[in-house]
Design a binder for these strands. Structure first.
Lengths: 222, 222
DNA sequence: CTTTCCGTAATGTTGCGGCAATATGGCTGG
DNA sequence: CCAGCCATATTGCCGCAACATTACGGAAAG
């Protein structure tokens, strides 16, 4: 599970990040609307949390643009403007939830988890490739009838590979998906994760091919 | 992925090149508008990054000419002139993005990647010649119904040939496309690649003819 | 304190791609 | 019309960089 946090108040952001990570939620943090749109482009997030007042404008204005890029991406808006009319305004613009400041951090966590559970959304949607079934909702996977025990980073990598099954996924895209945007990655850590993934899904009719010089490709064996 | 960088400040250019190459992006670097136009002629770049102030003029002035040569080539303009009016001026001239100096190198990388991901652009656009279909988005190719397994250099060469199908492509243009501008090439390596390409697309109704003394020509067999 | 995760590095393996040796075929000058 | 030359064709070889795999150890979680 990977979410995008758009918040310019550093202290609040830090508090949220540590709280969310305690709940096994990986957070990418940016501070402006512009950066937020870029991040959404990557398509790796399951939820976006937007502070309403940001240095480059009101985040409500970019909700339609986010929707264009990622239809169905759940959006939670945080705001000091908590009057009913403003909440309504936020929800009508397309936000899925609107949280007035100040709020208890745990409440945000709860609402995120609630949106993640929402059945109509991506939750409980599963993708099957060959004998591998990957559940987008909770990140669980089943290969050849056997449930797999995957670690956090393995889930992140497999999610991207499965979503783009049959198409080559650039190495850099995978790195972005498994680590944050910021975290630089030394050595061959990604290779190691792929290797472990391969071993775990071994007895299925699905393989992770490496495309030399480009990246990886997951596809069902013919 | 291959981009054109037009930048006369040597230090900045060096920094950008090393950052981009770390992201598997091949960079061709020139320092003047004149060289830029020449480079665009080659048709091998997916994105152009122009510094606005160059020794031979304002790079905005050549954007229309670039558009004439390569419709749809995404263009990013870098400039010390970051006032809103100037940004707007840049965008209205036809730039796809406008980045004010000073900027963080990683931000440029992110914007390039964002443009590359833009679905309306080159991605998923395919060209078909005879029984050969080449996907500009991911460099994949299908001949006579069978997907081809191409190596990196083969993809680069075939991409140029396909884009100019029916027209002769000069040997020097192909060399530029397969290698950087700088990398000199000894021996007949290019010929070898063409030979391997021919073998791979053999059973299709498309052929690579050699034009003696000039270069190569890809066209459907009558 | 134990366990799991994951980053790192050491080592093994693969296959791309540069080079050159040799073959082929077309063009030119005699 | 032939000889010789030069551009291109084809193929094998092999270095090296990219990838695979595994072991190890630190760190964080329980």
């Amino acid at each position: 599970m990977r979410i995008l946090l758009v918040e310019d108040e550093v202290d609040l952001a830090k508090a949220l990040i540590s709280a969310l990570e305690r709940h096994d939620i990986l957070v990418d943090h940016v501070t402006t609307l512009e950066m937020a749109l870029e991040a959404v482009e990557s398509g790796v997030h399951s939820i976006a949390v937007l502070d309403r007042k940001l240095p480059d404008g009101d985040s409500l204005t970019i909700i339609p643009r986010i929707r264009k890029i990622q239809t169905g991406l759940p959006i939670i808006v945080l705001s000091a403007l908590g009057a009913p009319e403003q909440r309504i305004e936020g929800l009508e613009t397309g936000a899925d939830d609107y949280l007035a400041k100040p709020f208890v951090v745990d409440e945000l966590v709860a609402r995120i988890r609630a949106l993640m559970r929402r059945p109509a959304m991506i939750a409980d949607m599963a993708v099957t490739v060959g004998q591998l079934t990957f559940n987008l909702g909770d990140g669980s996977a089943v290969a050849a009838g056997e449930p797999l025990t995957l670690t956090r980073r393995e889930v992140l990598a497999l999610e991207v590979l499965v979503k783009r099954a049959g198409r080559t996924v650039a190495r850099s895209i995978l790195e972005e998906a498994v680590y944050g945007f910021d975290d630089e990655i030394a050595s061959n850590t990604l290779d190691a994760h792929i290797s472990r993934l391969r071993r775990k899904i071994a007895p299925g009719r699905v393989e992770i091919h490496s495309i030399r010089g480009i990246g990886y490709l997951l596809k069902a064996t013919a």
